[in-house]
Amino acid sequence: MKSGIYIVNAENREGTTGPEKLRITTKMKEKHKCAVRGSRCLVLMTVSLGLICVLLLVFIILQHITITAERDLIKSYKNTVEEFNQTINSLQDNYTDLMIEKDQLQNIFNLVIQKKLELETTVNNLTVEKDQLQRSVECLSQTKLELESRVTSLNFISTSSELKSWSDSRQYCRDHGGDLVIINTEEKQESVWIGLSDTEDEGNMKWVDNSPLNQG
């Protein structure tokens, strides 16, 4: 049997008067209106629930998308932080290596500076020794010149093996920057010409420096 609201015609009902029929008809109309209103409310509630479900579903989807995006973002942040940490560790290792190399280079530089100072000291000492040697050489050169001058000014004995006359022997000595030797002892008068003669004043013996002969 179908459900529904049926309006009964009050005129066909037996035993009902006019006012009663009117009341019955009014009540039936009110019931009909209430039924229509309830149906509309039910439809509205159903539509509202559907919209709420749709909105809830959309919210859940958006929430899921947001959570997924946040998870991806957090994961990306974590990866970035790990990369930063690795980079920082690598830079720290490089910094440590550079500091070690810096210390080694500083030690080498200090050694080089020390060697430089030692070499400068050695060079200064050698310069002093060189100056001393130079002065010594100059003194020796001066002494050599003085000795050469003395040797030149001294009378010397001819070492020639050729026999010469007195005049030739004296000339030979003069040609070599000297003169015949002057001796005062008999031991030095053997086998050599001496600087004593009487060529300028016969019978008056004089040495080549014009000093008289000492008798004895």
Results as ranks from 00 to 15, higher is better:
N214I: 12
I100G: 04
N110A: 08
T68C: 08
L91V: 06
C139I: 12
V208H: 13
L62A: 02
L62S: 12
E186A: 07
K144W: 08
S165H: 03
V43S: 15
D131R: 10
K116I: 05
S3K: 04
D201S: 08
L140E: 05
Q171C: 03
T26M: 15
E11Y: 06
Q132F: 04
T122D: 15
Q86P: 03
Q63K: 09
S141W: 08
L163G: 04
K2R: 07
M99A: 09
S48L: 12
R23P: 04
Q92G: 07
D131I: 04
C53N: 10
R170A: 11
W166R: 03
V58D: 10
I88N: 15
L98W: 11
C41S: 13
M45S: 15
L51N: 02
P212D: 10
K130R: 09
K21V: 01
N94L: 06
L119S: 06
K2G: 08
Q171F: 02
E11F: 02
Q189R: 14
D93W: 10
D131W: 05
Y6T: 01
N89M: 08
N184F: 11
K115R: 11
D201N: 08
Q114Y: 07
V181F: 04
I61L: 09
H176Y: 07
D209F: 01
Q86I: 04
W166F: 01
L119T: 05
L147W: 12
D201F: 07
C41W: 13
T121D: 14
S158A: 06
E14L: 10
V128T: 13
T127E: 13
R135Y: 14
S160M: 02
Y95H: 13
I194C: 11
E82M: 13
K115D: 10
V8A: 00
K29C: 02
K102S: 12
I108A: 13
S141P: 00
S167P: 02
Y77I: 10
F109R: 09
I52F: 15
S149Q: 14
I24A: 09
L163H: 11
I61P: 03
G203V: 00
I157R: 14
E129S: 08
D168S: 08
E200D: 09
I113Y: 08
N184S: 06
I7L: 01
N124H: 07
L213F: 05
T80G: 14
R40E: 14
N110D: 14
I52D: 09
Q63F: 12
T25C: 02
S211V: 01
G18D: 15
I183V: 07
I7G: 00
D103G: 03
K33M: 06
G15E: 06
N184D: 10
V123T: 10
L163R: 13
E70A: 11
M1H: 07
T152P: 00
W193E: 01
L56C: 11
F84V: 10
L22S: 14
Y95S: 06
R71I: 11
S39T: 05
S3P: 05
I157L: 07
